[in-house]
Design a protein around this nucleic acid. Structure first.
Length: 415
DNA sequence: TCTGGGGTCCTAGGACCC
DNA sequence: TCTGGGGTCCTAGGACCC
């Protein structure tokens, strides 16, 4: 086992809110939130009032009457997030980006160039502050799990280095909620057993944990509590599914609502699949009712699909199947489409001359091919003239969506 | 004036095959 | 006729992450 702490976890603080405060100095020092109906990010001044991400706008305003909601500069989020991670890249190519504002780095091979990991962490923080203008917290430790916890402990705008000699002292007094994989439900289940800290978790017999939390979760948490984390920094990652969803507040479950929304979602998902030269065999839809209960329906096809119209047609069948099983529900609050079981799309990669050979793989045969050709030309026009130049579903929607499409793209991971 | 959006992984039961 | 076990795939639902 490596005895040196070489893993960095860097995490921009209150990211969207910090960007807004950087761009508009009049917002600095004030409680602000990015979002509207729901809080996407809150500044530390707002967090002091108990405002948290994911909270409804109304609830946030009750907690913090002077809370100021600011519009999202979505393009800037992407640009500045990239810029901050690029600072990390100056120290090592071994970067695992987890999201727009967060990444692991293994600097073990860079010590002879740049000095100790702690020194590099300080440099990263200094440069991100000076060159990007944003606060970033960094944890340094021997494992990813410890580094991630360390950066959380370091927030806001701090640095925590976990000495390999004192790892268990660091870990065992912390609440279990800080562990990767412990959410509200698991925290509550553990609390019922009297387990509040990671140290108490480590003292709990593995069998009891697995009985309470299931084989996988119980085993994983037990290992982490005993400070065994075998994970390495992974620089390459491929998506296993692609999905899109649309919350609708409260709408009647009728064709004039469902049709346009599903076509729009299918368009988003299928366009992204084709851009990655991928297609998927399993189509999943989700319908959420007004009381927040949700049902899913899925089907696995013999061949992978990426054509917009085919996806929309299948999704529609699945949604109506779900609704047929819940005849009492007259209103819905969300629709979603997902595609998984992804494959590289040979047709797309080889282009037209080889298309006929592969046609039989696609449901609908020659119709499928014709749709694919149409979809590709739409993709090309949009590449040249912008997404809105060709409408599909979105035009019919004819209303402003609460979350702009640019923001949705931010959640995308590299292919 | 309402609870966003995009992902990963796990579990459990059933179908089907050997 | 009843009885067994193992493996794989599919479907529905959940917990969790950012």
């Amino acid at each position: 086992m490596s005895e040196v702490a070489t893993i960095l976890h860097a995490d921009l603080d209150a990211f969207y809110a910090s960007v807004e405060q950087m761009l508009d100095p009049s917002l600095r020092g004030k409680p602000i939130a990015v979002g509207g109906g729901v809080v996407l990010a809150a500044s530390y001044e707002a967090k002091a009032f108990g405002v948290r991400g994911g909270m409804s706008g109304r609830q946030a305003r009750e907690l913090c009457p002077h809370l100021q909601f600011v519009g999202g500069h979505y393009k800037d989020y992407q640009r500045l997030g990239d810029q901050a991670i690029d600072v990390l890249r100056d120290f090592t190519p071994l970067i695992e980006r987890i999201s727009i504002d967060e990444a692991f780095a293994d600097v073990g091979g860079s010590v002879h160039l740049f000095g100790s990991p702690e020194h590099m962490a300080k440099e990263v923080r200094r440069r991100v502050r000076e060159e990007v203008g944003l606060p970033i917290s960094v944890g340094v430790a021997r494992t990813k799990h410890l580094a991630k916890i360390a950066s959380q402990v370091a927030k806001p705008d701090g640095l925590v280095v976990v000495d390999p000699e004192t790892e268990l002292d660091f870990l065992h007094d912390l609440p279990v909620r800080l562990m990767w994989g412990v959410g509200p439900v698991t925290q509550e289940r553990l609390a019922e057993m009297g387990v509040q800290t990671i140290g108490q978790l480590a003292e709990t017999p593995g069998r009891a944990l697995q009985r309470l939390l299931g084989h996988a979760v119980g085993g994983k948490l037990g290992a982490l509590a005993w400070n065994r984390d075998p994970r390495e920094v992974e620089t390459y990652h491929r998506a296993r599914s692609v999905s899109a969803q649309s919350a609708m507040g409260r709408k009647p479950a009728t064709e004039d609502v469902i049709g346009p929304v599903l076509r729009h979602l299918a368009d988003r998902v299928a366009t992204r699949l084709r851009a990655k030269s991928r297609a998927g065999r399993t189509i999943t839809t989700r319908v959420r009712f007004t009381d927040m209960r949700a049902v899913t329906r899925s089907i696995t096809l013999p061949a992978a699909v990426s054509a917009t119209v085919i996806l929309a047609d299948i999704a529609k069948d699945l949604v109506y199947a779900a609704l047929a099983d819940h005849p009492a529900e007259e209103e819905i609050s969300l629709l979603a489409i997902g595609v998984s079981h992804l494959e590289d799309d040979a047709v797309l990669q080889l282009e037209l001359p080889f298309e006929l050979e592969h046609e039989e793989r696609r449901p609908g045969t020659e119709k499928g091919a014709a749709r694919w050709v149409l979809d590709r030309s739409v993709d090309e026009v949009r590449d040249k003239f912008g997404r809105e130049s060709v409408g599909y579903g979105s035009v019919e929607l004819g209303e402003r969506r609460s979350i702009p499409d640019e923001f949705r793209e931010l959640a995308e991971r590299p292919v």
